[in-house]
Simulated scan of single mutants.
Amino acid sequence: MTNIQKKKIVFVLLSLEGGGAERVIINIIRHLDNRLYEVFLILFEAKGPYLSSIPGYVNLYDLKKTKSGLFSILKIIFSLIIIFRKIRPNTVVSFHNMANVITMISRYLSFIKCNLVIGIRHYFHEDLIKSFNVLNLFLYKNLFKYANCIIVNSAELGKHSAQFFHIKHDKIKVIYNPIDFENINNLKNEYLGTLSSDQFILAVGRLSHEKGFPYLLKAFSLIKEKIHENLVILGKGPDEEMLKKMASDLDIKERVLFLGFQSNPYKFMRNARIFVLSSLYEGFPNVLLEAMACGAPAISTNCPSGPGEIIENYNNGILVPTADEKALAVAMLNLLKDENLRKKFSLEGSKRVEDFSIEKLMSQYEHLF
């Protein structure tokens, strides 16, 4: 049998904390043929719930970042240069704004020739831009265009990125986030615990501004007297205490359950009466696809970017305007009261997400490698 020269692929991430980009990378790694690819994963910090999901054949590098600041960044760049020169990869893939910048600088200073693929995973909303310091924004807008390829996870985000970063359209590749149905099906039937099946509204996401949870809490407060379902929120983040106080102020504290990050959200999705995404902006909402894959009837804001490319309004879900608690409340109440509509959304939603199976999308990733 002829020996096949494996292609060397290096993935660079900040960590494996519980975000959408991290799940995407792990899904890609797990579905790459290790007979054809030698896979390396470099983490600035080897932490996060997805560490246990790394296949045994992956070469893991932990850069042990413990501090912030210029010295820490320079140390990471130096470490990456050494690793790149040692591995001599065919392709380097990075999926995070700051990781993209550091990876690009390190690749350049290592004097190696390789294909550099970066991922832009979210819409650069005005509020997000304001959070960047001047140097970071300068680096993002002036370095990203030098990558060989930029992967975006929605067509709308591709148009936005081309304009915002002054990137040529032929460098941008739209590849939707892949869904690992096998993994979801293996986990969704786990025991739910003390929660009653089909008796709660579910929301999942980082507890931060862009997810729009205040509008969800306000919407729930508007219909609380008309429904018996409670609201379950999965996730952690900087706004947790503010949201809990808001629930108390709205007199819904006893009916809103903040259950933190869950390594298996699918058992909640399978048992939820409805699923709600209240985001102000997204890159591409994995969690919406995953909920629909579990059969949860879905409502989402029509935020930039992604939901409008997943949901066909009132065919496989409901789209509502962003930052509009009244419209969200009406949609939630209507769906909770209409069993036939829930059954329709559950069936049609499950069909829609088949287009995002990892088996269908892996060939697009492999073409870049």
Results as ranks from 00 to 15, higher is better:
Met1His: 14
Thr2Asn: 14
Thr2Cys: 12
Thr2Tyr: 08
Ile4Ser: 08
Lys6Pro: 02
Lys8Ser: 05
Val10Ile: 13
Leu14Asn: 13
Ser15Ile: 05
Ser15Lys: 10
Gly18Tyr: 09
Gly18Gln: 12
Ala21Ile: 12
Arg23Gln: 08
Leu32Val: 04
Arg35Gly: 13
Tyr37Arg: 11
Tyr37Val: 05
Glu38Phe: 09
Glu38Tyr: 00
Val39Cys: 09
Leu41Val: 08
Leu43Met: 04
Phe44Leu: 06
Glu45Cys: 11
Glu45His: 09
Ala46Tyr: 07
Pro49Thr: 14
Pro55Trp: 07
Asn59Ala: 01
Asp62Val: 01
Leu70Glu: 11
Phe71Asn: 13
Ile73Asp: 14
Leu80Met: 15
Ile81Met: 03
Ile83Pro: 08
Phe84His: 04
Lys86Gln: 12
Ile87Trp: 01
Ile87Gln: 00
Pro89Ile: 12
Val93Ala: 11
Val93Leu: 13
Val101Ala: 05
Met104Asn: 13
Ser106Thr: 11
Leu109Lys: 03
Val117Arg: 05
Val117Gly: 07
Ile118Leu: 04
Arg121Met: 09
His122Asp: 15
Tyr123Thr: 10
Lys130Gln: 02
Leu139Thr: 00
Lys145Arg: 13
Ile150Met: 09
Ser154Thr: 07
Ser154Ile: 00
Ala155Lys: 15
Glu156Arg: 12
Gly158Cys: 09
Lys159Tyr: 15
Ser161Arg: 06
Ala162Val: 10
Phe164Ser: 06
Lys168Asp: 14
Val174Met: 00
Ile175Phe: 00
Ile179Glu: 08
Ile179Asn: 04
Asp180Asn: 14
Phe181Gly: 02
Glu182Pro: 08
Asn185Thr: 10
Leu187Cys: 09
Arg206Pro: 02
His209Asp: 11
Glu210Phe: 02
Pro214Asn: 10
Leu217Ile: 01
Ala219Asn: 02
Phe220Glu: 01
Phe220Asp: 04
Ser221Leu: 04
Lys224Thr: 10
Glu225Lys: 11
Lys226Leu: 10
Glu229Ser: 09
Glu229Tyr: 06
Asn230Ala: 10
Pro238Thr: 12
Asp239Phe: 09
Glu240Leu: 08
Glu241Arg: 05
Lys244Pro: 00
Lys244Arg: 14
Lys245Ala: 13
Ala247Val: 05
Leu250Glu: 10
Asp251Cys: 13
Ile252Asp: 00
Arg255Trp: 10
Arg255Asp: 11
Leu257Tyr: 08
Phe258Ala: 00
Leu259Tyr: 10
Gly260Pro: 07
Gly260Lys: 07
Gln262Arg: 15
Ser263Gly: 15
Asn264Pro: 04
Met269His: 11
Met269Trp: 05
Asn271Arg: 14
Phe275Lys: 05
Tyr281Thr: 02
Gly283Glu: 06
Gly283Gln: 12
Ala293Ser: 07
Gly295Ser: 06
Pro297Asp: 02
Ala298Pro: 08
Ser300Lys: 03
Asn302Asp: 15
Gly306Asp: 02
Glu312Met: 08
Asn313Val: 06
Asn315Arg: 15
Gly317Ile: 00
Val320Gln: 01
Thr322Lys: 07
Glu325His: 14
Glu325Pro: 05
Leu328Gln: 00
Ala329Met: 02
Ala331Lys: 01
Ala331Cys: 03
Lys337Val: 06
Lys337Ile: 03
Glu339Ile: 15
Glu339Asn: 14
Asn340Tyr: 11
Leu341His: 01
Lys343Gly: 12
Lys344Trp: 05
Ser346Phe: 03
Leu347Gly: 11
Ser350Trp: 03
Lys351Ala: 09
Lys360Ile: 07
Gln364Lys: 15
Tyr365Ile: 04
Phe369Tyr: 11
